[in-house]
Amino acid sequence: MNIGSALPALAALSHPTRLEAFRLLVRHEPEGLSTGKLVDASGLTQSTFSTHLAVLAKAGLVQSEKRGRLQIQRADIDTLRELMLFLAKDCCQGRPELCEPLLADLACC
């Protein structure tokens, strides 16, 4: 990942509704959630939520797939992994010891 792809992902996640929707999708991996269930969880109208979902999809954080009559939304875990690695590598500036506490926190969960 580079800064050109990291910025849209970070911008998409900077909105509370989008961040909560993405976190919900991550918790429901790998099966995903229907768009209807996401809309219900958000408390927004379908059209308002669709705008937020489009931002997440454009940033590469969410993928949509058709299952029968349902549109299923899934978090793109590969993009999440790339974003996290991009941030950690940049943060640590080539000094892995700076990221050791972060890695220890992740390992405990």
Rank of each mutant, 00 (worst) to 15 (best):
A104H: 03
H15K: 15
P16T: 00
K58Q: 09
I77Q: 04
F49V: 01
T35L: 07
L70A: 14
G94R: 11
L33T: 02
E65S: 12
A75V: 02
C99W: 08
G43Y: 12
L44Y: 05
R67F: 07
A9S: 08
L10A: 02
I3H: 09
E100S: 09
L13N: 09
E65F: 06
K58I: 08
R18H: 01
Q73F: 02
F86K: 09
L10D: 04
L13M: 08
E100T: 14
L44S: 08
S34M: 13
C99L: 13
P16E: 01
G43L: 00
P8L: 06
V39S: 01
A54G: 05
R23T: 07
S47L: 01
A11D: 15
A6C: 09
T48M: 05
D78Q: 12
K58Y: 09
L103T: 11
L87F: 04
V39Y: 13
A12E: 04
I77T: 10
Q73S: 01
L83T: 14
A11K: 13
G36H: 00
L25E: 05
L38V: 10
L7W: 08
P16F: 00
H52P: 01
V26G: 03
G43T: 11
S5N: 05
A12R: 00
L106F: 12
G43I: 09
R69C: 06
E100W: 01
L10E: 02
V62N: 05
K58M: 04
R67N: 03
L102C: 03
C99S: 11
A9N: 02
E20M: 13
P8M: 00
I3N: 12
Q46S: 10
L83D: 05
S42K: 01
H15S: 11
T48W: 02
T17L: 13
A104G: 06
E20L: 11
C91N: 14
L98V: 13
D78V: 12
L98Y: 13
H15E: 14
L70N: 11
H28R: 15
Q73L: 00
A21V: 00
R67T: 13
M1C: 05
H15L: 11
P30W: 04
H15N: 15
E29C: 05
D90Y: 04
K89Y: 10
A41V: 00
A57M: 05
T17Y: 11
C92A: 14
L83A: 07
L80M: 14
R18P: 01
D78C: 03
A104R: 15
Q93C: 10
L61V: 01
S50I: 03
